[in-house]
């Protein structure tokens, strides 16, 4: 089962985890990404390409399902204006064994960061704005899954 949600609303980690657990298996892995406080961040704006976002996330989830023995994959990604400490992204994977659950969760996050069409814009406490740039470490993390 694949569940993809993209929108402004926050998510409940407990509810999403229970839903994945309900699909079977006994190994549930999850990752939550939040807005990091780097000292002078006032807010973060997340823009996306609606027509492509669902498609890109679904492709990543389908690849995970074909590579690992999974019962369920849930990906939730928020868009719009977020504050420090707010949830941004949630990935939950369910399998019979922890290896598949943890690895596939890591794979989904690594691919999401370099493929899914989202862009972050920071507004600092001094009012200045800045588009976040791609990080080489993220690109390397994503490429390591290409066999």
């Amino acid at each position: 089962m694949i569940k993809i949600v993209v929108g402004p609303d926050d998510f409940d980690i407990g509810v999403e985890t229970q839903q994945v657990a309900g699909q079977g298996g006994g190994a549930i892995a999850s990752f939550v990404g939040q807005v990091r406080d780097d000292g002078n961040l006032a807010s973060l704006e997340l823009e996306h390409y609606p027509a492509m976002t669902q498609k890109a996330l679904r492709q990543i989830a389908e690849t995970a399902l074909s590579e690992w023995a999974l019962h369920a994959v849930t990906i939730v990604h928020r868009v719009g204006k977020l504050a420090v400490g707010d949830n941004i992204v949630l990935v939950v994977t369910g399998s019979d064994h922890r290896g598949a659950a943890i690895e596939s969760c890591s794979f989904i996050m690594d691919r999401l960061k370099t493929v899914a069409p989202f862009w972050k814009k920071e507004t600092g406490t001094d009012g200045t704005t800045k588009w976040i740039e791609e990080r080489e470490s993220d690109v390397a993390a994503s490429e390591k899954w290409q066999k």
């Binding site: 492509m52 960061k113 370099t114 899914a116 862009w119 588009w131 993220d138």
Partner: peptide, 12 residues
């Protein structure tokens, strides 16, 4: 029908 042009993505 549609070409999108954008910077490298930075979600997650």
């Amino acid at each position: 029908r549609e070409l999108a042009i954008f910077p490298p993505v930075t979600g997650g």
